[in-house]
């Protein structure tokens, strides 16, 4: 067993899972396929980059890393709220909302990419590896658990992403707001009738999903770079995971994220990075051929 492949697959799965669950939650609670998730992702990347440039001299200590991560998440939340403000609030009570909001979010991502291009230029912006300071503080660059050799960066990504996912899921199950959200998932009209505000709950969902995209951006951008089109690939991955998992099903999205992560890591290792997208779509064909509504496929009636 090649543990390197496993750990890199898990790290990828964790980050893609954040994106996929965000898209899935948005769809199931407010009925909007958020194609502007990539825009939020790129915005968060730029936010983190700005923080790493302006709020500290050099990324050395743990607090600095925390600042960068928080800046990314906050920008993500703001990005999500902006998308909600433009594509959800004015449209949610109009006829044909799913298609309209899909077009609106697509337009946001199209315009957003150009705005980033005009504001920040086409060059790649590097982000600091935010979990490195931990390793430096402990004075070892890698650590080992049994036969598995891990870098701090990878371990940190997996842990942070899983932690945020679990936190959000627990919050969705336990808190009052979470219950409101689940009520909206089951029946938006019924929820509105018993006094759940569709608008405020929807905006809250947008904010939370934006925050998840923000964390994913901080984690991914330290390996890759931030550029105007940085959101496109993660959006494609997130969409694939959300749809493979079955829109609206969080466990399905987790399984799909692990599947996609492994496919990507394995194809990258054995066939080269150019074939990853190809392999991923082959996976989509196979899964959708067996289960046309994705792995966790919900029934028609849940979300028409």
């Amino acid at each position: 067993m090649d543990w390197f492949v496993v750990t890199s697959a898990l790290a990828l799965a964790a980050m893609y899972g954040l994106l996929g669950i965000g898209i899935s939650l948005t769809w199931s609670s407010i009925g909007m396929l958020n194609l502007a998730h990539g825009f939020t992702f790129a915005a968060a990347g730029y936010g983190a980059w700005w923080a790493s440039k302006n709020l500290m001299s050099a990324p050395t200590s743990g607090t600095d890393a925390l600042i960068v991560a928080l800046a990314g998440i906050l920008t993500g939340v703001v990005g999500g709220l902006v998308v909600g403000l433009v594509a959800f609030l004015p449209l949610h009570d109009r006829p044909n909302f799913p298609i309209r909001s899909l077009i609106a979010t697509l337009a946001i991502s199209l315009a957003g990419t150009q705005i980033f291009l005009l504001t920040f230029g086409p060059l790649n912006k590097p982000l600091p590896k935010i979990f490195d300071p931990v390793g430096k503080a402990l004075d070892m660059r890698k650590f080992e658990i049994g036969p598995i050799e891990m870098t701090w960066d990878r371990a940190g990504s997996i842990v942070a992403a899983t932690l945020l996912c679990v936190l959000v899921l627990v919050w969705v199950r336990m808190s009052r707001r979470g219950i409101q959200m689940r009520a909206m998932m089951q029946n938006p009209e019924g929820a509105a009738l018993v006094g759940v505000s569709v608008r405020s709950t929807g905006m809250m969902v947008m904010g939370i999903c934006g925050g998840m995209a923000g964390l994913a951006a901080v984690l991914l951008s330290s390996t890759f770079f931030v550029n105007p089109a940085a959101g496109v690939q993660p959006l494609a991955k997130g969409l694939v995971i959300a749809l493979l998992g079955g829109l609206g099903s969080v466990p399905g999205a987790v399984i799909a994220a692990i599947l996609v992560g492994f496919t990507e890591a394995l194809t990258a290792k054995y066939f080269g990075t150019t074939t990853t997208l190809f392999a991923q779509y082959v996976l989509v064909f196979l899964v959708l051929a067996v289960r046309p509504r994705g792995i966790g496929g919900l029934l028609d009636e849940v979300r028409a």
Binding site: L33, P98, L239, V240, L243, L247, T274, T275, L277, F278, Y281, V282, V284, F285, L288, A289, P292, R293, G294
Partner: peptide, 27 residues
Amino acid sequence: IPARRMDGMYYALLTLGIAEVCRAYAL
């Protein structure tokens, strides 16, 4: 063939995938 069984967004994703597979193949 798959259009009969799948709906809306799933089919959109599948067809997007077809375009991507064609691109990768042509390359």
